[in-house]
Design a protein around this nucleic acid. Structure first.
Length: 389
DNA sequence: CGCACCGGGTTCTGCCATCTGC
DNA sequence: GCAGATGGCAGAACCCGGTGCG
């Protein structure tokens, strides 16, 4: 520790000089109070005693981060090693992000949540940003994603891999719009290694072939565009879900293939236990309501998203519909009504009761309509109730 | 026209474990 | 043995409107 202070002082000096030229230079320092205990803490007294001291934290860095409004305690908890580095680029990063339109608060939050961001060079940042700009039209869009998920942008230092990923995804037949949705929704996909993404795609293609499909490339593309989270899941998870679906529904290859290419794709990324649990509770609930296994199978095939709904939500939704005078048979025929929230359904049932709507006569499609259409319908029925007779 | 059918849009990070390269 | 890079995990629905057909 004794030899270090000189270097540290130099660094501190250099940092505080650059600080004055930085965007934060003019901002008063409201953080002096939080600054102080941090310095005391990072004095690293214990390590002076021990034989092989771990690197102490870089105090001038801590000070700098504090000035920037970074939550140092959070940063320390996430990536302690970064705080011990002698050379970092927090100023450069901050200026870079500010140039892209990020606020001071956003920048501080980004560094707090993903400290390693400050180890990236300007050249690296410029390059990576440009690659993202191939997909996003504006800097603002990127800023919002980076703010939402700093890790997705900063976790990998391999811009070459990012470039290859984009090329690969394009080669799968994903168009600009698909890529935009993918990067917006599951930005982590682009930080995956190319090999990992390839592994999932090839896994999907193999599944297709295994099930007797004749266009594996198209199949993989379809599954990905239907479920943008696929590429950030493990093949193990997706495989287990597929196996479980096949087993519990006793599906033939062709049936399974059809299911996976349609809405079945949307539930493949659920955690294995969750999907299993939902399946079991669905079966149990439906059986209790007098359905046969064949009914349940048909229900799931026609509306796989039902497995997305947790046991409690599903149960209350069904009860609410049944209490409202709708039969289980009607629900089996029009499961899409389960798409809507319990609250929405409850409200609509109340309104429909008010105007004397007869579900036996008119069916339940009315529940599966947009708010606008529903309101218009209610208004019409209120005006001329005889139409119900 | 009005309605049923159907597809599409939005949404999803922050943490831990493990390896790897120095 | 460190820090960086990367893989993997849990958590859990809701809503809108185009269109074609009667």
């Amino acid at each position: 520790m004794a030899a270090v202070p000189g270097v540290m002082a130099l660094l501190t000096l250099q940092r505080s000089v650059t600080l004055q030229h930085s965007f934060f230079g003019l901002i008063p320092i409201p953080l002096a109070s939080t600054c102080f205990p941090t310095r005391l803490f990072s004095a690293a007294k214990e390590s002076t005693e021990s034989k092989s001291p771990v690197n102490p934290e870089n105090e001038s860095l801590l000070e700098n981060l504090n000035l920037m409004g970074v939550d140092v305690r959070m940063a320390r908890q996430r990536q302690p090693g970064v705080l011990r580095k002698a050379f970092t680029n927090e100023q450069g990063l901050a200026q870079f992000l500010q140039g892209k339109g990020a606020s001071r608060k956003v920048i501080a939050s980004i560094i707090s949540r993903y400290p390693r961001a400050i180890t990236r060079s300007i050249e690296h940042l410029e390059q990576r940003w440009q690659l993202w700009r191939n997909i996003f039209k504006t800097d603002a869009e990127i800023v919002s994603i980076v703010d939402r998920s700093p890790e997705s942008f900063f976790r990998s230092s391999d811009n070459d891999n990012l470039e290859k990923n984009i090329a690969y995804l394009v080669s799968l037949g994903l168009n600009t719009k698909d890529l935009h949705r993918l990067l917006t929704t599951a930005p982590r996909t682009f930080s995956n290694s190319l090999a990992l993404n390839k592994q999932m795609v090839e896994f999907l293609e193999d599944i297709c072939i295994e099930l007797g499909g004749c266009n594996p490339e198209q199949f993989a593309k379809t599954v990905i565009t239907r479920n943008l989270y696929i590429l950030i899941r493990s093949t193990k998870r997706v495989k287990t879900n597929i196996d479980n679906l096949r087993a519990s529904l006793k599906l033939k290859d062709s049936e399974l293939l059809a299911l996976l290419q349609s809405h079945g794709a949307e539930i493949l990324d659920l955690s294995n236990e969750y999907l299993k649990k939902n399946f079991n509770s669905l079966e149990e609930k439906m059986t209790a309501l007098g359905c046969r296994k064949a009914d349940v199978k048909k229900l799931i095939i026609s509306y796989p998203m039902i497995l997305y709904i947790g046991p409690d939500t599903l149960s209350s939704k069904l009860d609410c519909l049944l209490k409202g005078g709708i039969t289980i048979k009607q629900i089996l025929e029009k499961p899409k009504v389960l798409d809507y929230s319990t609250q929405n359904i409850t409200g609509r049932l109340k309104e429909l009761r008010r105007v004397g709507y007869d579900f036996q006569k008119n069916g339940i499609n009315i529940l599966d309509s947009s708010r606008k259409r529903f309101d218009a319908k209610i208004e019409k029925l209120s005006a001329s109730p005889d139409e119900l007779m």
